[in-house]
């Protein structure tokens, strides 16, 4: 009986033949919805495909982890815990890169497929989000770059302010369709665009 793990032959990323399919592929239909007077209050877009990894510092390595992650614009996700988000990377590439960069100081888990990130931006973005989260989104309290873990419509949401009027909401993949239906409905009164 083999003692070491048996691995199949390594296959280069470029050889992956299957495309990734977003769980919102058929749900997030582009167009203008809700109240149709004037400019849309908010615009939604699904950021897919993305590479997402959870990074959690090992015991006593909080500072080292933060330093090692500085260049990745990590998103705070709990004590000594972060999400790293990247675009245009091959399957598993970000995970492997972080795992080797953080070897011994932090645990890395690939969440690229496990979470769906919805971007919402526009002048009414705070009004829409206030229908879900108890977090105070005033710019003095929640400036760009800040992240929070919260709940909206009974779904756990990791929320990051990415601009003055722009937020990204990260939810578990399985809830993404339900969450999409709920949050777009909250934007109907302002009119919304899906890009």
């Amino acid at each position: 009986m083999p003692k070491a793990p048996v691995r199949s032959k390594p296959v280069a990323v470029a050889e992956v033949i299957l495309p990734r399919v977003s769980p919102l592929a058929d749900v997030a239909v582009q167009g203008r919805f809700g109240a149709d007077r004037g400019a849309p209050g908010v615009t939604f877009s699904v950021r897919h495909p993305l590479s997402i990894a959870t990074v959690i510092a090992r015991a006593g390595k909080g500072k080292a982890t933060a330093q090692a992650l500085a260049e990745y614009e990590p998103r705070w996700a709990g004590p000594d815990q972060y999400f790293v988000v990247a675009q245009g990377r091959g399957e598993g590439a970000l995970y492997r890169e972080l795992k080797s960069a953080l070897d011994g100081i932090a645990s890395v888990s690939d969440q690229s497929h496990g979470r769906v990130i919805i971007r919402i931006e526009g002048p009414k973005v705070r009004n829409v989000l206030a229908k879900g989260t108890p977090v105070d989104l005033h710019a003095d309290e929640f400036p760009a770059g800040k992240s929070a873990l919260t709940q909206m419509a009974h779904v756990g949401v990791h929320m990051t302010r990415v601009g003055e009027d722009a937020f990204e909401l990260s939810v578990f993949r399985g809830f993404s369709e339900s969450f999409w239906e709920w949050i777009t409905e909250q934007a109907e009164e302002f009119g919304y665009q899906v890009r």
Binding site: P2, V6, V11, V16, I17
Partner: peptide, 27 residues
């Protein structure tokens, strides 16, 4: 569908947990 692994009781014994690829490179 498993890439490059001859599956048998030695390579994949009962209660094995392996990291492989399938369908030409899907982890």
């Amino acid at each position: 569908i498993v890439d490059g692994l001859e599956m048998n009781d030695q390579s994949v014994p009962y209660m094995a947990a392996l990291e492989v690829t399938v369908l030409n490179g899907v982890p």
